[in-house]
Design a protein around this nucleic acid. Sequence first.
DNA 1: GGTATAAGTAAACACTGTTGACTTGTCAAG
DNA 2: CTTGACAAGTCAACAGTGTTTACTTATACC
Lengths: 196, 196
Amino acid sequence: MERPDDAGACAGRMRDRAATRQRILDSARELFTSEGYEQVSSRRIAAHAGVNVALINRYFGAKRGLLAEVIAEDAVFPGIFEGDPATLPQRLAEHLTGRVLGPGTPLQRALEHSTGDPDLRSVYEERLKSALIEPLAAHLGGPDARARASLVAGVVLGMGTLRRAEGATALLELAPDDLAERLTRIIEQCLERSAA
Amino acid sequence: MERPDDAGACAGRMRDRAATRQRILDSARELFTSEGYEQVSSRRIAAHAGVNVALINRYFGAKRGLLAEVIAEDAVFPGIFEGDPATLPQRLAEHLTGRVLGPGTPLQRALEHSTGDPDLRSVYEERLKSALIEPLAAHLGGPDARARASLVAGVVLGMGTLRRAEGATALLELAPDDLAERLTRIIEQCLERSAA
DNA sequence: GGTATAAGTAAACACTGTTGACTTGTCAAG
DNA sequence: CTTGACAAGTCAACAGTGTTTACTTATACC
């Protein structure tokens, strides 16, 4: 099967499955990121992509599948496990702080608005599990690895949720460096091995 | 069909504003608690209360107002500030652990499913602020009080969110006592005063 | 008893995600 | 070059959502 490499530039190709699919995906990512999953309707995504609404369900099963594909593209904490294991908490804290203070990644911003529907929660949690908890647990090793990784995930989740809320304002009362150091210690605490 | 059985009891007053309002509120609390805000439609609440749908908007402005009233009734952590301040982290951790392991309060269960819509998030966050962050900050005192209280709120939020998800399974790998002690230390870490 | 006023109702509105039947463009075989 | 087949794309409808408007009706007071 050979495919035209210049599908985007080719004016002759009116009906290009791959290109259409990609346009939908691009529109979804853009709109989910800026406005949140639940705030963007299927029809709006389709209109933005210049495509019929029904194609969303044709190509992605449902709106939900579109979200799953969008969030599957991006890493939650890209490259977080590269480097000295001893300074992992610090790196995590800095990622987290960057988000508390800054705009956050598109993925995270998209997820921030979209955890109400159980259907979505499962998509989100699947991603949190596969992108954070499991690799972190593997990284840690030991019998309590999954539990300790989950504690970290809980902190990550909570601080992320707080980001846009009142909490962010309060958290900004701390100097950025101070905040990062606090989060480092909190995460270290999460990762501490059981005394038993 | 889902009419309350005591409908016949109020023989005197067929049209009782207060009673009708209360029936709606009761139905909403029950359904929100068991199924979550977004999963329960206005029409279903109305049917359950044996009342016309339009009355929800008449009495509560919108479905959202119904949620606000439901969650305003309950304390997030009832009586948490009574007792020795030194053992506050432990009490918080135990509350939290009770929720990680047990069914949680109706309020918390309702909130768990309902944080997608920004409209709701604001209701939720308002409550988290008024019921946890502010009293905790007042309890703590000092310049960083609000920031430290927010860190705690972040942990509370994150662990609560993780409760129903994969994380809960992983967290259960820890013995309940161990989990409680871990959370205690994490919260203590959140509350630590700045060294500067 | 009549009537103002509040309580309650019905039907619609503008949306949502999703689906099945339909049309139409494209490409390969005859 | 024509003809089919099949995929790509379209359209209209369905069942559901929260909300609003115009309406009816029961109650309480004069």
